[in-house]
């Protein structure tokens, strides 16, 4: 049993809705005339985490760090390469699509671009009805009632039922996606950059709505975003990803007040601040995210880390527990 697994055991007094254990998702890279596999993009590379019922777990990290892939594998919208996913203690990692059906209504996803994820040929009524048709035995009248009540819940007028996605603004379309995700009374929703495409005034409306719905329906969120302020606002705990791995995971307050991983520190320092009286010192990282098909040896962050030392090139740091609920993967914190 690894250190992490031991820690996980201790935490099992918590009521976990989702657990990921040593989860991996590798995408093959095909090359040459024979289209043979010449390598792998290690989009998710050995991630273990648990999501507590009723909480919001935020996931941050640069573009390409594997946030969306992690979300999709957890929901089994993608096959994991290795590892396990438990939903309410049941292993769903190897279930067939048919076997997954009873779980589908409990787990939903809201995407960044509601325009791409909403079928433009369906009106709002049809969009919200679709999951109800597949998963429930509600009749036409009941489905209509349900759609109206969902629209009201997300702050849209019931008479917008007969309109099509292109007739709505970005914020309104995101409300439609949320209504659709709520249709089956899910327990767990993955929000993949749900407000990234929205203006701040509209972003605030949608974030407030999501918080209200969480309270009302006791929802659990995995909230993926690259905006650290948004994640701080909405989350209870936050995981920082770097090249397919978790660099640090901690309760929100610990992560933002006392970040431990050099990458988390740099990330937080880089957020432009509106506090004109107290300017934060910036840690400017050199270079870009390395390719996930050929990550640096040892610690994947070492090519940009201001604190990298010899050992960092040789050994990969494992996630270790440094204080209650606070885990970090960096050699600086190993005894």
């Amino acid at each position: 049993m690894s250190v992490i697994e031991k820690e996980l055991k201790i935490e099992t007094e918590n009521d976990f809705i989702v657990e990921a254990k040593n989860l991996k998702k590798y995408f093959p890279i095909k090359g040459g005339v024979l289209k043979r596999t010449v390598g792998h993009v290690k989009a998710v590379d050995d991630i273990s985490l648990s999501i507590i019922r009723g909480e919001t777990l935020g996931v941050v990290g640069e573009s390409g760090s594997g946030k969306s892939t992690l979300g999709r594998v957890i929901l089994r919208l993608m096959e994991p390469t290795e590892g396990q996913i438990l939903f309410e203690n049941e292993d769903i990692s190897r279930l067939s699509n048919r076997q997954l059906r009873p779980f589908r209504k409990d787990m939903q996803i809201v995407f960044q671009d509601p325009f791409a994820s909403l079928n433009p040929k369906m009106n709002v009524q049809e969009l919200i009805e679709e999951p109800l048709l597949v998963q429930t035995s509600l009749d036409k009248h009941e489905r209509r009632e349900k759609a109206i009540s969902l629209l009201e819940k997300v702050g849209l007028r019931p008479d917008s039922r007969l309109k099509y996605p292109h007739e709505f603004s970005g914020g309104q379309r995101q409300r439609i996606s949320i209504a659709r995700a709520l249709a089956l009374n899910p327990k767990f929703i993955i929000c993949d950059e749900p407000v990234s495409a929205l203006d701040v005034s509209i972003q605030a409306q949608v974030l407030n709505l999501m918080a209200d719905l969480q309270d009302e329906f006791n929802l659990t969120y995995l909230f993926i975003a690259h905006d650290l302020s948004v994640v701080k606002h909405i989350s209870d705990r936050v995981a920082v990803m770097y090249l397919g791995r978790i660099a640090e995971i901690a309760p929100k307050k610990n992560l933002y007040d006392t970040p431990l991983h050099p990458y988390t520190e740099a990330l937080l320092s880089a957020v432009p601040s509106t506090d004109v009286l107290n300017k934060r010192e910036k840690i400017i990282l050199k270079g870009d995210l390395p390719s996930p098909s050929n990550p640096p040896s040892g610690c994947a962050f070492r090519t940009r880390c201001p604190k990298a030392h010899e050992r960092c090139a040789l050994e990969r740091p494992e996630l270790i527990n440094v204080s209650e609920g606070h885990y970090v993967a960096c050699h600086l914190y190993e005894q």
Binding site: Q172, S201, Q203, A204, Q205, S273, T274
Partner: peptide, 22 residues
């Protein structure tokens, strides 16, 4: 705008959203 902006410095329970849209 300033009230609807989540920030790293201050913690608020609810963001002050502007109603309606641009």
């Amino acid at each position: 705008l300033l009230e609807s902006l989540p920030s790293l410095e201050k913690e608020v329970d609810r963001l002050g959203a502007i109603k309606g849209m641009v």
